[in-house]
């Protein structure tokens, strides 16, 4: 299996043909498995070219640490974090699996992204920050602290996604108005209805950071 080239963030020396072959095998997962079950190996088109089908070892850079995982091309970053890493990082939640709800939001290269729509193989070598990367219960980030102070959570299942999205929003638009914040956070759903207190938390962070700037 070919390793990713961490410096470029791109699969190294991958030909279009091999990518397509890999993709075909992935798309036909059900078929392959039946073939395997029947004892017939999947057809190898060109033995000289390695493909990304099957299981690959990758190194993910999660919260500043290199983490080795064995993944398939279809494995999402979300599943790599939650079920492939040992120990797993379960702070990032799976709610919809289809990029609708934002519960799985992480930063990839510093940008917010749905980890359920991001393939793990495309994240090799790129810095990934999950909710655990912002702070711990004993040493919370300012956003995490504000979510606690303002009760920006109830059941808490959407909270990790909101915390990451709020960090990203406030980094990108430190002085975002309430309407701009609503836009920035519109990729995240909460069913308990904590939005008003999430907005309060974001505003509290804005105030604190602005005060910090003044004090400098």
């Amino acid at each position: 299996m070919r390793e990713m080239d961490p410096s470029s963030g791109e699969p190294s020396a991958i030909s279009r043909r091999s990518f397509l072959k890999g993709a075909t095998q992935v798309a036909a997962a059900g078929g392959i498995i039946q073939a395997t079950a029947a004892g017939a190996p999947a057809e190898v088109v060109d033995p000289e070219v390695e493909t990304l089908s099957g299981t690959s070892s990758l190194e993910l850079l999660v919260n500043g640490k290199a983490r080795s995982v064995e993944v398939q091309p279809r494995t999402t970053l979300l599943h790599a974090l939650r079920t492939h890493m040992d120990p797993p990082l379960t702070g990032t939640k799976e709610v919809c699996g289809t990029g609708s709800c934002g519960a799985c939001t992480v930063l990839i290269d510093g940008q917010p992204a749905y980890s359920c729509l991001s393939l793990a193989v495309t994240c090799a070598g790129r810095p990934v920050t999950t909710v655990e990367g912002f702070g711990s219960a004993d040493a919370m980030s300012d956003v995490q602290q504000a979510f606690c102070d303002k009760d920006g959570m109830m059941c808490g299942f959407c909270t990790p996604g909101f915390v990451v999205a709020t960090h990203a929003a406030l980094d990108r638009s430190p002085k975002a108005s309430l309407d701009e914040l609503k836009y920035e956070l519109s990729g995240n759903f909460c069913r308990c209805g904590t939005y008003p207190h999430v907005f309060d938390a974001a505003a509290a962070v804005q105030e604190d950071r602005a005060r910090g700037e003044e004090g400098r």
Binding site: M140, C148, G152
Partner: peptide, 8 residues
């Protein structure tokens, strides 16, 4: 709150 806000 702290364990929920940090994913713990």
């Amino acid at each position: 709150g702290p364990v929920k806000a940090t994913g713990e």
